[in-house]
Simulated scan of single mutants.
Amino acid sequence: MAEPYFLLLLAFPPLVLLVFLYFIVRPHPVKIPIKKRHVFITGGSSGIGLALAHRAAAEGARVSFMARSESKLEEARNSIKMATGVEVAAFAADVRDYEAVKKAVDEAGPIDVLLLNHGVFVALELEKQELSDNWFQFL
């Protein structure tokens, strides 16, 4: 008869510990204000990068973004200007070209928030790629 109570007493401390740990380590959303900060986005002329640029501009950040296509950059820049009324800086550069990226970053000025959203795709089988073609050389 005492056996079920004994099992309950054994299970109680670990359950209390789990509940206690849940309240200590559970994720808490963090809102970092970006108003008046400089946000630099690579791959910002379309897709997720453009959406991030819209959001940052709407929240009052100074936005710079970079992509390869000058025409897409200009379209993106105009869409942000029309949607938010904020001027953004656009830089045409390929992330694989160190000098072009360095020039864009130097022109943009000090960066507070860096969003790396670019994608580099080389359409070859891994065994046939040279080391210089691999994306992981940039890490």
Rank of each mutant, 00 (worst) to 15 (best):
A2Q: 05
A2I: 07
A2W: 11
Y5I: 12
Y5R: 02
F6W: 04
L7R: 04
L8H: 02
L8T: 02
A11N: 10
A11W: 15
A11K: 13
F12R: 07
P14Y: 10
P14V: 06
P14T: 08
P14M: 10
L15H: 08
L15R: 02
L17K: 09
L18G: 08
L21T: 04
I24R: 14
V25F: 12
R26K: 12
P27E: 09
P27K: 06
H28D: 05
H28Q: 10
P29Y: 14
P29V: 10
P29C: 03
K31E: 03
K31G: 04
K31D: 12
I32V: 14
I34E: 01
I34S: 05
K36S: 14
R37E: 06
H38S: 15
V39D: 02
V39Q: 03
F40S: 03
T42V: 14
T42W: 00
T42R: 03
G44S: 10
G44T: 04
G44I: 04
S45C: 07
S45L: 05
S46L: 10
G47I: 10
I48D: 02
I48L: 12
L50V: 05
A51N: 11
A51L: 12
A53T: 01
H54M: 10
A56L: 08
A56F: 00
A57I: 02
A57Q: 00
A58G: 13
E59I: 03
E59W: 01
G60L: 04
A61M: 06
R62D: 03
R62T: 03
V63T: 02
M66I: 06
R68K: 09
R68I: 12
S69I: 05
S71G: 08
S71T: 12
S71D: 14
K72V: 01
E74D: 07
E75V: 05
E75K: 14
A76E: 01
N78A: 12
S79E: 05
I80N: 00
K81F: 06
M82S: 15
M82I: 07
A83R: 10
T84D: 12
G85C: 09
V86D: 01
V86W: 00
V86Q: 07
V86E: 15
A89T: 13
A90N: 01
F91M: 04
A92M: 04
A93G: 02
A93I: 08
D94I: 05
D94R: 08
V95K: 03
V95W: 01
R96N: 08
R96Q: 11
D97R: 02
D97M: 02
Y98A: 13
E99Y: 09
K102L: 13
K102P: 00
V105G: 01
V105H: 03
D106K: 13
D106W: 05
G109K: 11
G109D: 04
P110Q: 07
I111K: 00
D112T: 13
V113P: 00
L115A: 15
L116F: 13
L116E: 13
L116G: 10
N117T: 02
H118S: 12
G119A: 06
F121W: 14
V122G: 13
L124F: 15
L124R: 15
E125D: 15
L126T: 15
E127M: 05
E127A: 14
E127S: 13
K128R: 07
L131A: 09
S132P: 02
D133Y: 09
N134V: 05
N134M: 11
N134L: 07
F136L: 04
F136M: 03
Q137N: 13
Q137P: 08
F138K: 12
L139G: 08
L139C: 14
L139I: 05
